[in-house]
Design a protein around this nucleic acid. Sequence first.
DNA 1: CGCCGCATTCAACATTTGTTGAAGATTAGC
DNA 2: GCTAATCTTCAACAAATGTTGAATGCGGCG
Lengths: 225, 225
Amino acid sequence: MNSASASAHPDTARLESRRTRILDAAEKLFAEHGYDGVTLRAIAREADVDVALANYHFGRKHELFEATFMRRAELLNRWRIKALDEAFAAAAPNPPSVRAIMDAYLYPILHGPHITEPAWRSYYALVAYVNNSTEWGGKLMSRFFNPMVDRFIDALRKALPDAREEALFWGYHCLSGALTLAFAQTGRLDKLSGGLCRSEDLEEAYRHIVVFVTAGFEQLGLSTE
Amino acid sequence: MNSASASAHPDTARLESRRTRILDAAEKLFAEHGYDGVTLRAIAREADVDVALANYHFGRKHELFEATFMRRAELLNRWRIKALDEAFAAAAPNPPSVRAIMDAYLYPILHGPHITEPAWRSYYALVAYVNNSTEWGGKLMSRFFNPMVDRFIDALRKALPDAREEALFWGYHCLSGALTLAFAQTGRLDKLSGGLCRSEDLEEAYRHIVVFVTAGFEQLGLSTE
DNA sequence: CGCCGCATTCAACATTTGTTGAAGATTAGC
DNA sequence: GCTAATCTTCAACAAATGTTGAATGCGGCG
């Protein structure tokens, strides 16, 4: 999909072909098995290139991982911030509602200009992995997502003027956790519900999660307790 | 703590000493770095025993992991179910409120008969890791926790008679995710809030999470939409 | 003591790991 | 067609991995 896209220079496209194939393979495998669960040889096999090529293009293994992580983070951040700006514009001169903010945060995940590319599903699972990786995962998440998250928390501060400051951050933790888990389980049936509720069904997930977290934030926002 | 406890036979206690030391070391390291991020040699070093001893007591590496995972799962399940039973008893003849059910689910994590043992903190991070490990993590979680979770969902079904069936399961996903993330980040400062909201502060976490998820469930329970 | 069952150590195994440097292929400019 | 630069492969490295089988300690029992 990415190989023949745009076709700026035909040569550049072909040159980047293997590079992006490595990135795609890394994305898929890292999302499935985590950083230590994937070998460079497995990535090379998946991408159908030589082992040494990953090293040539990206350097060391952890640098390849970061490159994989960063590639889509920037896009996702842009889409979310754009959606948030639109929510502000639509609600002006008032701040947007909590529901509108949640929609801005969640909507791009499902309805960004990319829904067709299945690689994004892998990426969400990758984010879930990083988000739950206690050691350096937190640092990575902070580095790539914090500026965007700050804007959302600021929006929530305006939508919930009575909320205590910690409540906003804890609420964001809950939001992030709920979202993370939904996508971590991407692709596997939910044994619990006997197949009634599938993590693959992003539309269903979206409808329920947005209701859940909106209510959670609004309740937290009341508590000057 | 476990080594000199009870002292059934002095020899048995000493015999289990190394065995449990291996289990403790594995718990700590697996929680920090995940399954593939930990070597048997690192566990042996942490437990101050020989490499081969882990193999002697637990067999293969993944069996050691499961043993680690199972050890506390049974206790946790018992505490939660006991708390749920008490909630039913206290509310009889009505079903317990959503808040009471959430308390039963969350309370044992913080106020079980174990708060003093720091190893439990590692265990929660371990559960978080397993919960987000897409491959076999889901199977492990199902195997060890599903019976308990079923009882809680059944309680919610009674507390929220208008809720659609899927809503209960998605709500549980959100609950589980919020909880998971809070403990996955155990031990590291929250860069986002500039240290205002620390994941180590379990009491704070508890107060906010319980409010958030209770509100989420109650809102989901209304939606016959 | 001698024997036995258990726990523990030792040394080693075959693989696999990330990484590298040199050699080969491909492309672009002239 | 020659050159230079970039991309790709090949072969190999040392280090680390999970696992094993034989050897060693060590308690209790006859």
